[in-house]
Amino acid sequence: MLDTAKSLEAKGLATVTYLPVDKYGMVNPQDVQNAITDKTILISVMLANNEIGTINPVAEIGKIAKAKGILFHCDATQGVGKIPVDVQAMGIDLMSFSAHKIYGPKGVGALYVRKRNPRVRIAAQMDGGGHERGMRSGTLPVPLIVGFGKACELCEQEMTTETTRLAKMRDRLQADIMAALEESYLNGHPTNRLPGNLNISFAYVEGESLLMGMKDIALSSGSACTSATLEPSYVLRALGVGTELAHSSIRFGLGRFNTDDEIDYTIKKVIEIVTKLREMSPLYEMAKEGVDLKSVQWAAH
């Protein structure tokens, strides 16, 4: 969404107000309320954050939007199939989500467009034969659509049991790692987050080296949004996490095919590699000697 908003701004088509998040990565509905002007036509909020899993108070924001007669768009890509999503209860007028996040085929996504109360009119994404009510002309990729639908169906059937299973594994992963490793910090909301997400910063070790030490586990140190750069996560920066801790974060994503054995293995591996890299870290050594790292004059490069 950020890039789309920035692109609209750059083209001079819109003025955008960007709202902050709290230390858990949550948007405050009051901030939304306060940011509304008589020119506001659209509010857009992501349902859940991809890096830290924090779930936004979407229903409250939807209510505010409705009261002001402003359209409400929600990027629900991370939440659909994982937590209950109801466009009526949440007051969502437009909702985008994608099949590949819910074990469906890659290359297909959906935009929910409210038909009445209010009827949302959107510009055609491409012109042509008038398919999809004229919003997206072109022959439909039926196999992808069918796969997407089946993926949604399976997620809905399994949601209750799967949520419980994932949260249990995730909580164990978190508890065991954080009990064994001092100065490890949870990023994101402690309870109000996606069941399969865990994001931890390990002070004094750098994220990329952590990943390198756990090559046999599929993990990431940020998001695909910034994988082309070496910049630390802007999501973590927005929470007020210091740059050095943002460099030290690992995101664990749990899903349908993960097992308890894999969690055991990951716990063991994480403790091993963090301990090894801390032994190797001059920052850890200094901290142990009682040096206040913030007081050191670093030669930034």
Partner: peptide, 13 residues
């Protein structure tokens, strides 16, 4: 010799 800075993501001693 100690070079680099934590906020840049690397420090070498």
């Amino acid at each position: 010799g100690m070079v680099g800075a934590p906020e840049c993501g690397d420090v070498m001693k």
